[in-house]
Design a protein around this nucleic acid. Structure first.
Lengths: 225, 225
DNA sequence: ATGACTTTGTGCATCGGTTCACAAAGGGAT
DNA sequence: ATCCCTTTGTGAACCGATGCACAAAGTCAT
């Protein structure tokens, strides 16, 4: 039984959660430029959203602004970081060290946000043993052992589509409950496991849809295929 | 036929558009396995959505199913492809040939969907002139010329954050209206330009949020699994 | 202190999207 | 043809998210 409760409501809407990292990014930029205080209007512009939405989002975390003044940049950075769980350090494993896996391993954006690439794993004997981004690539046979040994709690799947489900099952079997999937397949996982997916070709297809509409529109019979 | 305009209702909801590529992927898999006909229930499972949603989505394109039977796989592939604009070929330019740009250039998922990487562009003299994925890397000074010469209509930004807005402005100046942005910045563009963004670290942050909550939020309730 | 001014936090109307649940439409058997 | 079975397509209720608009709460100047 969950009462509305007078304290912090822990039921933060998904849509809000998805925008918090955006605010955080904008705030980091401001902190770097020495801005101490920011209004919802300015922060909204920097994050590319509208100010009412931003205020409502922040209000889900608590009442951290000062009326007539705005938000303290440092303080807000801390509050959002804490809410997102970025005040602790997360060990991430990347499985699949092809072009994409390599790019992810070298991507600076992770480290700067409390994420630490703690392991690289691949099946190809050609790359196992290589050092990428300062890390030794380990063999897929070691997958479970590596995950346990390094305390990995988030796994990034950058394998070929055909291998993704099996790797997924295996990491779940050793307790991983958060997966970021780049393979173009629908993973089937238990309820308790969180999967987010990024499909590069899907994004392009959505762009193509809109582009087509702009270029031709409904009554454009150029489609003489 | 229908009241307003006799043609297909062109107002397809965004949420539906975003799922069409998912259905398409599932259908391609089925076609390969020789499945001729599929029910909304089976297709929904394959695409990872619920069947009512799938039927409503498809109903926006038209009435392509047969009651009591299901959908013809080949026919549905064609209809969705056409709707998404994948029956034509799209020339894509990738700007920024770092780790990520390279990964994208080599990513097979594009080609297989009517997208053709038509140009690679970078600012670093070290990589300009290299051949990657069978393409010559051209200098950023040539950006506008290359885009016009190759008929590029979709640009993928894989540059450092600091360079993204300038490149964005320049490609827009030569008529590009669809941009896929991997740089962690909010691009400012005219109304008429479509930007989709993929931010790898944002996805991880969302996972971290949920992971933290699972692991025991502020007041851990410890329910007995 | 007081009043003018700024900006937050939120109640409320609205909108788009999801899900339910069922009538309508087809196939196949007799 | 008629009946039964399957599955689509969709009206309608529901649900979460968005955006407006404003009272409440603070700052600053005098």
């Amino acid at each position: 039984m969950k009462s509305p409760s007078q304290s912090r409501d822990r039921g933060i809407p998904e849509a809000t959660v998805a925008r918090l990292p955006l605010y955080l990014r904008a705030l980091h930029g401001m902190a770097e430029r020495g801005i101490a205080t920011v209004s919802s209007e300015d922060l909204a512009v920097a994050a590319g959203v509208n100010s009412a939405k931003l205020r409502k989002d922040l209000s889900h975390l608590g009442s951290y602004g000062t009326r007539g003044v705005g938000y303290d940049v440092e303080y807000l950075v801390y509050q959002i970081s804490r809410e997102l769980g970025l005040t602790q350090d997360w060990a991430v494993a990347i499985v699949g060290v092809g072009n994409l896996g390599r790019a992810l391993a070298n991507y600076g954006g992770f480290v700067s946000r409390g994420f630490r690439v703690a392991a690289l794993v691949d099946a190809d004997p050609e790359v196992v043993g290589d050092t990428i981004a300062g890390l030794n690539v380990e063999h897929i046979d070691e997958l479970e052992a590596v995950i346990k040994r390094r305390g990995v709690s988030i796994v990034v799947l950058a394998t070929p589509a055909a291998a993704a489900q099996e790797v997924c099952d295996r990491v779940i079997s050793v307790g991983v409950t958060s997966i970021l999937n780049f393979a173009p397949v629908v993973l089937s996982v238990p309820e308790s496991v969180d999967v987010r997916k990024v499909d590069l070709s899907i994004e392009l297809q959505i762009l193509a849809f809109h582009e087509q509409r702009k270029a031709g529109g409904p009554l454009m019979a150029m489609d003489s295929q």
